[in-house]
Computed example of a mutant assay.
Amino acid sequence: MRKSFIYALLVGIMVAWGLNVTALKILVDHFAPVTLTALRIFTAGVVVLLFLWGSGQLRKVSWNEAKQIGVAALFSVVAHHFFLSVGLTRTTAANAGLILGLVPLVTSLLAMMFLRHRLTVFRLLGIASGFCGVVFVVANGDGGLGHLSVGDVYVFLAVLAQGISFIMIKKATVEARVMTGWMLVFGSVWLFVLSLVLEPGGVSSLKDGTPSLWMIFLASAVVATALGHMFYNQAVQHLGPAESAVFINLNPLFSLLGAYWFLDETITLGQLVGFLFIVAGVVLGSGGLDDMSARFRRAKVAAGGRKVGM
């Protein structure tokens, strides 16, 4: 697979993921959020498993692997999507998209804590820059920083849950795409049970859906969640996690544009400043610059060695 094609594929995935925030905002404004999320995630999980079955990559998992999948699903699916869906009912799609842009940075910070990744100057600057960006975003929301939106807090908890799940997936012994499919299915079942407790009338709210809303639902479930995660994992296998993660910097941009184009949300100067801080934080803190610097030093040493040999 050519690198140019993989790069184009990653840009397309980032467009889908960024616009998915807008799609979710529309959906949770019309349906019970947890019930809707359970159905959306279950649909995505079935699509992934059918794809793997059709391509001959679906296999049985051992009891130990099933436990790994179940625990990871609690964070990756249940906690992440619960906090995200509920948070979107109480904040703007623009704010949510910007805060979600912290996922690579938070993952990098957790990797330093639990996987013993070393703390470099670039990473430290990235952490500081990323969280400064969040302060700019929430400070320019309704009521300013003194009246922090609970929706923003929920979205940040969704980011934290996603970061924890990535650490668990890194440690797991299950192939990433197989794990993704089963996590989505297992997690959706738990979300549905949770929705029965929190939203007794949640299932009946689905009856009010219009054809256009169900089209948005399918695009979110199939394109953004199922295919997006599968193809992103495939890109990681070809390029590596550091190079692939650089493209996640585009995610907040498309979230902002989607909120502006489709929801008529106003993009403030503070949000744009926050966006720049978050992107800088992700570039510095996710380890991409450290890897580039290391490759440059190795190339310089190798070039020096060739000159000596000559």
Rank of each mutant, 00 (worst) to 15 (best):
M1W: 01
M1Y: 03
R2S: 13
R2K: 12
K3Q: 10
Y7P: 04
W17E: 03
L27H: 01
F31N: 02
V34M: 03
L39S: 08
R40L: 05
I41N: 07
A44R: 01
K60N: 13
W63N: 07
E65N: 10
I69E: 09
G70A: 15
V71H: 09
L74D: 07
L74H: 08
V77T: 09
F83I: 01
S85D: 03
V86Y: 08
P104K: 06
L105C: 09
V106T: 01
S108D: 01
L115M: 06
F122W: 13
F122H: 10
L125K: 03
A128I: 15
G130W: 08
V135E: 06
V138I: 15
N140S: 15
D142L: 08
L145N: 07
L145P: 06
L145C: 04
H147C: 09
L160E: 01
F166K: 10
I169D: 08
M179E: 08
M183G: 02
F186G: 11
L196I: 08
P200S: 09
G202Y: 04
S204H: 12
S204V: 13
S205L: 04
S205W: 10
L206K: 07
D208S: 15
S212K: 13
L213G: 10
W214N: 05
I216H: 06
I216D: 01
F217M: 02
V223Y: 03
A224R: 02
Y232K: 02
Y232Q: 11
Y232A: 03
V246G: 10
I248S: 13
N249W: 01
F254T: 11
L257F: 14
G258R: 03
W261H: 06
F262N: 12
E265H: 10
G274C: 06
V279E: 12
A280E: 11
V282Q: 06
S293P: 00
A294E: 14
R295W: 11
R295Y: 11
A299P: 02
K307V: 15
K307I: 14
M310L: 12
